[in-house]
Computed example of a mutant assay.
Amino acid sequence: MDKEIEDVTADISVYKACLQRLEQESYNILGEIDFQKEKQKIEEEEEELKAAIEEAEKKYAEVASEMKGLETEYIEFEQSKERYWQEFNSSQFQLTSQQEERDAVSAKIEVSQVHLDLLKRTNVLNDAFHISHDGEIGTINNFHLGCLPDVKVEWDEINAAWGQAALLLHTMAQFGRGQWFWRTQFDDAMKTFLTCLREFAEFAMSLDKENNVPPHKSLKLPYKIDGDKVRGHTVVRCGNTEENWTRALKYMLCDLKWVLHWFVNSTSFCAVVDIKE
């Protein structure tokens, strides 16, 4: 009970202090006219606030509508972008495929061009008459033309080699452009064959001169033919050593090969030649 009395007494003291403070404050009591003015002012401010709120709500609705439109446009833009990238990737794939196909075609064209150039440089005479050598012995179509003390060659093979050489020279003389070379009657004599080869070479060099072929492209035999000799070695068998005779035949075949190269590069001859006996 004492504690409760003490608490109530404390509350009374606080209320008294508040009452004294309120009694000391002054109040301006408005008259009826001032009250009405103040009321009207507050009401006008309230109307202005309502109008401002309505305007703000209107703008909010407009902004919300614009945002909704922007969201729709954004969705459409994303869809358009997705279609664009799909079309782009498809076009890129088609372009890559076309480029690969073009590269493949270009590669085929390049290979075909190489083959065409090779065919253009190919002549039936080069294939029909292969001139080479086997050590110190010249060969034509793998027939040895000549022999050595330590390398025996049958006369049938030597005769066959001479026949191939004569056929080649005869073919070039018979199937040039027009009357390139007067038709010499060939016999089996080696001296006559060498003379025919020299005359054919001289005729070819005269054509180069007439056609103003540059000296570095004009025909020039690697080994000089003088009578029955090639580079000082005679093709005559009688009274000659096998070494010198074979060496002369090898030089003769080399000259014949140079004439063949000139003939291939200077004519349009490319057909298979039909030689009648």
Score class of each variant (00 low, 15 high):
149 P>S: 11
36 Q>T: 10
206 S>K: 14
54 E>T: 14
48 E>V: 07
41 K>L: 12
131 I>C: 07
226 D>Y: 00
167 L>G: 00
36 Q>C: 13
234 T>M: 00
268 S>T: 14
243 E>P: 03
152 K>R: 09
202 E>F: 03
64 A>T: 11
222 P>L: 05
106 S>Y: 04
56 A>L: 15
98 Q>L: 14
150 D>I: 04
243 E>G: 04
179 Q>V: 04
74 Y>C: 04
166 A>R: 12
16 K>G: 12
257 K>T: 05
229 K>G: 01
12 I>G: 07
271 A>E: 15
234 T>I: 02
197 L>R: 03
8 V>G: 08
153 V>S: 06
271 A>I: 14
64 A>I: 12
222 P>Y: 03
92 Q>L: 11
227 G>R: 09
26 S>G: 13
124 V>L: 00
198 R>H: 15
119 L>C: 09
194 L>E: 06
125 L>H: 02
43 E>T: 06
229 K>P: 04
68 K>Y: 09
108 K>M: 12
184 T>I: 00
32 E>G: 05
146 G>N: 04
100 E>N: 11
59 K>I: 10
140 I>M: 01
125 L>P: 02
188 D>N: 11
144 H>Q: 13
141 N>E: 04
6 E>W: 09
53 I>F: 02
70 L>N: 05
72 T>A: 13
86 Q>K: 11
60 Y>D: 02
165 A>M: 12
190 M>L: 09
254 C>E: 13
93 F>T: 13
219 L>D: 04
148 L>G: 02
221 L>P: 05
141 N>T: 03
46 E>W: 15
95 L>W: 05
164 Q>K: 14
72 T>K: 14
176 G>S: 09
214 P>V: 01
247 R>V: 08
27 Y>N: 13
88 F>I: 09
139 T>N: 04
220 K>W: 01
78 E>L: 11
66 E>I: 03
8 V>C: 04
112 S>W: 11
75 I>W: 01
126 N>Y: 00
126 N>E: 00
227 G>F: 07
221 L>Y: 08
55 E>P: 00
239 G>M: 02
251 Y>I: 02
206 S>C: 05
24 Q>V: 10
2 D>C: 07
218 S>G: 01
231 R>M: 12
192 T>P: 05
14 V>R: 15
236 V>N: 00
236 V>G: 05
245 W>I: 01
93 F>P: 01
231 R>H: 14
201 A>L: 07
155 W>G: 08
148 L>S: 03
162 W>N: 14
158 I>L: 10
41 K>P: 03
18 C>W: 11
209 K>E: 14
162 W>L: 12
52 A>G: 09
256 L>K: 01
252 M>E: 10
19 L>P: 00
36 Q>F: 12
1 M>S: 15
226 D>F: 01
110 E>W: 12
123 N>T: 10
255 D>L: 06
67 M>K: 09
41 K>Y: 07
79 Q>A: 03
44 E>G: 14
54 E>N: 13
155 W>D: 11
155 W>A: 09
137 I>K: 08
169 L>S: 08
150 D>C: 05
237 R>P: 01
74 Y>M: 09
181 F>N: 06
222 P>E: 00
74 Y>T: 07
1 M>P: 15
240 N>L: 08
6 E>M: 08
107 A>L: 13
89 N>V: 11
148 L>P: 04
79 Q>F: 00
